[in-house]
Amino acid sequence: MANTILQQSLKNLESAFKNFFAHRTGFPKFKSKHKKQSIRYPESCSIQGKSLKLPKLGIVKAKFPKTISGKIKSVTVSKTSTDKYFAAILFETNNLIPHKTGKISGIDLGLTSRVTVFDGETCTKVDPIKPTRKYAKRLKRRQQALSRKTKGSNNRKKQVKRVAKVHEKIANTRLDFLHKLSRKLVDENVQTRHGASVLVVENLCVKGLARTKLAKSVLDAGFGMLINFLGYKLEREGGKLIEVDRFFPSTKLCNCCKSKNNSLNLSIREWVCPNCQTHHDRDENAAKNIREEGVKILSTNTVGHTEIQACGEDVRLVGACAKKHSSVKQESPVTA
């Protein structure tokens, strides 16, 4: 079975070069021996009781977060920088995507409130968590201890793992929060009647925001990861994720009279429209405008024929409306 594993490595290299020549990513690089390592078993893998059988390795004890009932296509075993092993199992399933209906909700992403959701009737806000700042003191102390260790010594290698554990704690805290938040948003917008649900978000340029003075907070928020999670979870529930153009002035546009207020800056959280004298909450006004723009995108798209109903509005939905995102660790892996 070793030949199939080596062949799979060559296939991965081929895919990397194809993505490079298609200008989708950078030039392939060798894996660092100090970071995450992985290997894929394309066949001859099976589950025996509470263990996972892998070619050449034999039976390995594992914890399964869910029941795997279909045919196993491949297993990818990865090792983290803190010496933890995970197995991502790809298997076939006969579960069909449920046909459900919900509502069109606009979602404004921010730093003061992680998300502000407007479903056509009410606005709800979710407070952010800041794992990088929460564990900053612990990380600082362990990095200071690392700098005092002699290069090449065993004590330095041990301290490197202690630093890596703090980074892993920060990443896991952020990942757990984003998974729970995306699941909550999808569940609250999907009901049990026939049809589909739609979530509308902004297509933020996270790379550009990461160059500002708020870079640390922007990267800690994980906006791109949240949109990825919403995309694939909505797809499983029969819904769709629509992205509004990043240049759409959702914050500065008055939701009542549609006049644009160019005098707003980031420090102003509430403002009064100079035209109609309507008092606005910054985030709630943006969520309402994003929802209206999403409805407009759906209603003006006449190419497709997939018609859905949400909140009594007849709209047409096409897969080209929403930009596809590649899923990042969609489900919790199996701990081996």
Rank of each mutant, 00 (worst) to 15 (best):
Q8L: 11
N12E: 12
K18E: 15
N19T: 04
F20P: 06
F20Q: 03
K29N: 06
K29R: 15
K33F: 03
K36H: 07
Q37R: 02
I47N: 05
I59C: 01
I59N: 04
F64D: 07
P65D: 13
T67R: 13
S69V: 14
V75S: 04
S78A: 14
S78I: 13
K79I: 14
S81E: 13
K100Q: 15
G102S: 04
I104L: 11
S105T: 14
L109V: 05
G110A: 07
G110R: 12
T112W: 05
T116A: 10
V117Q: 10
V117A: 03
E121G: 11
T124S: 14
P128Q: 03
I129P: 02
I129A: 05
P131W: 00
R133F: 10
Y135R: 10
R142G: 00
A145F: 07
L146S: 08
N154K: 09
N155T: 01
K157Q: 14
K165Q: 13
I170T: 09
N172Y: 00
N172T: 09
N172C: 04
D176W: 00
D176A: 08
L178R: 06
R183D: 12
K184N: 10
E188F: 03
N189T: 13
V201R: 09
V201N: 07
V206D: 02
K207P: 00
K207E: 03
L214V: 03
L214A: 06
V218P: 01
V218K: 00
D220H: 00
F229I: 02
I242M: 02
S250A: 09
C254D: 02
N255V: 05
L264H: 02
R269V: 02
V272P: 01
Q277M: 10
H280V: 06
E284N: 04
N285E: 04
N289P: 08
E293H: 06
L298C: 15
E307S: 12
R316M: 11
R316D: 03
K324P: 15
S327D: 10
K329T: 12
S332D: 08
S332W: 11
A336L: 15
